[in-house]
Structures are given as C-alpha cells and as structure tokens.
Amino acid sequence: MHIAVFSQYHTNPDCPATSRHYSLLAHIARQHRVTLITTNTWEPQRLTHEYPWLPEGVEMLAADIPYHNRMGVAARGWAFVQYMAYAWRQGRRIPRPDVIWGISTPLSAAWVAGKVAQQRRVPWVFEVQDLWPTFPIEMGAVRNRLAQRQLYAAERRLYEHAQHIITLSPGMTDYVRRLGLGEEKLSTILNGTDLDQVARATPEAVASLRQQHGLAGRPVVLYAGTFGRANDIPTLVQTAEALHRLQPDVVWLFMGHGYYEPLIREAAARCPAIRLVPPQPRHQVFTWLAAADVSVVSFVHLPVLDTNSPAKFYDSLAVGTPVVVTNPGWTKQFVEEHRCGWYVPAEQPRALAEHLHRALSAKAELRAAGQRGQQVAQQLFDRQQLAAEVQRVLERAAG
C-alpha cells in the first residue's frame, strides 16, 4: 500500500522537539510504501546526529520554508501558504497513493491533503494535533469575524470529507463529536512517548546529570518545552520566585526556547532558583525529566487548551516524574484518576508555588505518584502500540 503523508514539520529525535511521527512512520514504513511531503524547517536545528533524518523506507519531498516560534501572524501565514503550494504540486506528481494522511497543525496542511485526495480520488485520514482554527482565534491571532467564520467552515468541511479522523486526546475527540460526526469516523490515539528512549534515563545517567549541574540533593522543578505565548511562562516565572522564598534550596529549570526566553533570562539573573537550560535533543530530554522531582505542564486559561496533548505530559510520567497540570480538561482528570500528579488552576502563581512547596516536602508521596505514572505510561503511552493503531486506521481507510 502507498501512503502519502502531508505534514508541514518533520522532526527526528536529534531535534529539540517531539518526534511522534518519526516513530509512527518508522513503524508503518516496515510494511507499506510511505511518501512524506514536508519542509526542511527542523533539519538545520538538529543538535546531535544519532538518528537518521528519515526512518528507513520513508521517501521525502521537502520544501525550503523557514519557520520559528517568534514569527508574527503574517510571517506564519506566509509559511503556511508556501507549504500549501508546494504540497499541492508534489501531491499531484507522486504516484497515486492508496490513502492520504493529512496532519495538522497547521490546518492548512490538512486542507491541502484533503484537496489532493479529492483531485486524485483517494480516501484521506485527518489527524488533528491541535484544534485549529479555534486555537489561533482564542489566542487573538485571527480577529476578523468573517475570517473566523470562513476558517470554521473550512474546518467543518475537512471533518466531513475525511474518511476517518484521528485525535490526540479525549478532549479533542469530544470537540469533534459535538460537531455531529459519527463515532465510526473517530479514533483517539494519544500523543504517547518513545519507551526505548525513556530507557536511556538510567539511575546512573540521572545521578551524573544532577552532579554535573549542581543539583545533587536539591529539589528540582522542571518546565520542558516551548516558551510560547500559550504556555503561561510569566506565571511560571512568578511561581519560581515565590517558591524560592518558601523553599530557598529549590531549583527551577526552564528548558527550551521561544517567545518568552528573554523574560526567563532576566529572571534567572535576579533569582538564584531559576536556571535557563538550552534546548536538548529529544533523546536526552528524558534524563532531564527523570532528574526532576516535579514536572510542570502549563498553559494559559483558554478552553481550547484544555483539549491539548503535550509531549512533556507523557514524557514526564514515562520516566516516573509526577506532573502538575494547569488546565481543567482531560489531563486534570487523568492525573486525578491515576494519582500521578496534581491540578492547580492556570495563571495563579501563588497557589502553584504553595502547592509545589507542599508536594516537594512530601517525598514519599512524590515517589509513589511517580511510580503510578510510570506504570500507566507503560500500559497506555507506548508509541509502537499507537503506531500500530494508526496503521490499522490507514489500512481500513484505504479499503
């Protein structure tokens, strides 16, 4: 079977980013022909070269289109348009696929996948990574009411025309279900994590990292990910400073890059508890997460963000580090049901600092929560099992 994959951003484990589709494509390409239509945005950002850029068996067509987190709305929009034009041309030129797999974000990548599928008269599967256009609209990036209506109409048509829809969280599935889509068209396949890379976070590797960075014997809180506008970074900075006053020996690590990096850098200069850690390749992130006592998964208070499926949530639990989440969606329900973390409402730095102080003071409960999280991660988060689910969806869609 020939599968054409439309995904604007391809990464591998050498990149400072999640590599969900690297794992999924590696699994699927063992049995099927895979053509990936993407961009080379992330390839220059590789921090190591331990992994091939492409999984074995995957054919790639990649456009040279720059993109980064600090881009404004207009620049991002232009990058999306460029990819759409490139993907449309390549999608019509490649040998006719049996099924097309269109991956958002952005929504435009899925839109062009649907259009190529229609033109080539093949079924297509729509994977929803984030709820677009709801996310940029709630973030204030699209203010024009007419444009909002047009984007929502385009989104609805994509859901209706797709042979099948994959979402990355129960919250996303509920959103799509409310649009009137039948259950037979919906599959929830979690973001998940790479358990083979989790295994790199051995006790020896963790102890070495803590010793190397002066963390031995100190409580550690970690935020690992993008310093974006949606991630509530100003609240975390205020929390770290408040926590330092409550518990001076705590170290708060901010690992990543993005819009709020200057804010964190300034805070680190004035507060000894705050440290800015450069972005790490994905395969090394797990040791950092395992070195932390608590991982924070934070977002601003917007309803659309209650549905998301952040990689750091899965990665943290997989290495046995409990998480604090700040959105009252499915992640809150998950950590409370499995007792592997805690919920603190978004944008409340004092409440978050006090909760972290209590959690860090209860060492036995921290360890127990981490163990429970690790157990559930082994059962539910393995990307090899999730890849097999995606493969079955694509095979059924292709008939």
Rank of each mutant, 00 (worst) to 15 (best):
Pro106Cys: 05
Pro106Lys: 09
Pro106Tyr: 01
Ser108Tyr: 02
Trp111Asp: 10
Trp111His: 09
Val112Phe: 07
Lys115Leu: 13
Ala117His: 02
Gln118Lys: 11
Arg120Trp: 01
Arg121Trp: 04
Val122Gln: 05
Pro123Gln: 15
Trp124Ala: 04
Val125Ala: 06
Val125Trp: 07
Phe126Ser: 06
Phe126Lys: 11
Trp132Met: 11
Trp132Lys: 12
Trp132Glu: 07
Trp132Asn: 06
Phe135Trp: 10
Gly140Met: 03
Gly140Val: 05
Gly140Pro: 03
Ala141Trp: 11
Ala141Val: 00
Ala141Ile: 00
Arg143Met: 10
Leu146Val: 13
Arg149Glu: 04
Gln150Ile: 05
Leu151Asp: 03
Ala154Asn: 08
Arg157Tyr: 03
Leu158Phe: 05
Leu158Gln: 05
Tyr159Asp: 02
Tyr159Ala: 07
Glu160Phe: 07
Ala162Val: 07
Gln163Cys: 15
His164Leu: 02
His164Asp: 02
Ile166Trp: 03
Gly171Ile: 00
Thr173His: 07
Thr173Asn: 08
Asp174Glu: 15
Val176Gly: 01
Val176Phe: 00
Arg177Met: 05
Gly182Leu: 13
Glu184Arg: 10
Glu184His: 14
Lys185Phe: 01
Lys185Glu: 03
Leu186Asn: 11
Ser187Cys: 08
Ile189Pro: 09
Asn191Gln: 12
Gly192Gln: 04
Leu195Asp: 08
Leu195His: 14
Asp196Val: 06
Gln197Pro: 04
Val198Ile: 10
Arg200Ile: 00
Thr202Trp: 01
Ser208Lys: 13
Leu209Ile: 08
Arg210Cys: 07
Gln211Asn: 15
His213Leu: 13
His213Gln: 14
His213Asn: 15
Leu215Glu: 09
Ala216Phe: 02
Ala216Gly: 12
Gly217Ser: 12
Pro219Glu: 08
Val221Leu: 06
Ala224Cys: 15
Ala224Leu: 15
Gly225His: 03
Thr226Tyr: 09
Thr226Lys: 14
Phe227Trp: 13
